[in-house]
């Protein structure tokens, strides 16, 4: 696979998007980028990554910020821009990679070799995964899952032209409920290999 390919994965909370991304990266022998992008941005800029993480994958608050001549006080906007810039530079470098979240499908839209995927899942399946992963009660898992989904949706829809989870924005939308995370990863890997072959 000498030609560059980039797999951009969007995901609902609890759907196993991160695990699927990791499995795909391993299978395809490429790097996985998710939250570690913040660390890479911070290392590049020689600043504290923890401080950046506070504003990562969040939409700006509705009040108490101001814009002047193309500048803004909304720190969420800055962290998003720093990440988007890093993602674009990665793509420009010619590296093939898997990226989870960060509006990557929108940031890289139009690039040759981009494959966009959204992972969803039945509600009960996702609740069970969250309960198991975080040792939470049913109610607490629902609360956590809904909160994260709201934040992700708001973030994505604020910084992207397309809507979060809308099938029109992705090459493939798949539920992980039926094949599980491993099975879904294998299915997607097969799809990616076919896509790469078709492009050659």
């Amino acid at each position: 696979m000498s030609k560059q390919f980039i797999v951009a994965i969007g995901r609902e909370f609890g759907s196993g998007g991160k695990h699927i991304g990791r499995a795909l990266a391993k299978k395809l022998k490429v790097n996985l980028y998710d939250r570690n992008i913040v660390e890479k941005v911070a290392a590049e800029m020689e600043v504290d990554a923890d401080h950046l993480k506070k504003y990562e994958e969040k939409k700006r608050r509705p009040l108490f910020h101001r814009s002047v001549a193309g500048h803004t006080t909304a720190l969420e906007d800055h962290v998003a821009e720093l990440q988007f810039g890093y993602i674009k530079r990665l793509a420009d470098s010619g590296e093939s990679f898997v990226i989870v979240g960060r509006c990557a499908e929108d940031v890289l839209r139009g690039r040759e070799g981009l494959i966009t995927i959204f992972i969803t899942g039945d509600r009960e399946y996702r609740i069970n995964r969250v309960m198991k992963q975080f040792s939470l009660s049913h109610a607490a898992a629902i609360e956590k899952m809904d909160r994260h989904d709201r934040t992700r949706k708001a973030y994505h829809n604020h910084y992207s032209s397309g809507k979060w989870g809308d099938a029109k924005n992705y090459d493939l939308v798949i539920s992980s409920s039926h094949l599980g995370t491993e099975g879904t990863a294998e299915f997607i890997a097969d799809y990616i290999e076919r896509r790469i072959k078709a492009a050659e």
């Binding site: 911070a42 800029m45 600043v47 500048h71 006080t73 720190l75």
Partner: peptide, 12 residues
């Protein structure tokens, strides 16, 4: 204030 904090934020 907006411009100063924004310039700083662009550098992390």
């Amino acid at each position: 204030n907006v411009v100063g904090t924004s310039v700083a934020a662009k550098s992390g």
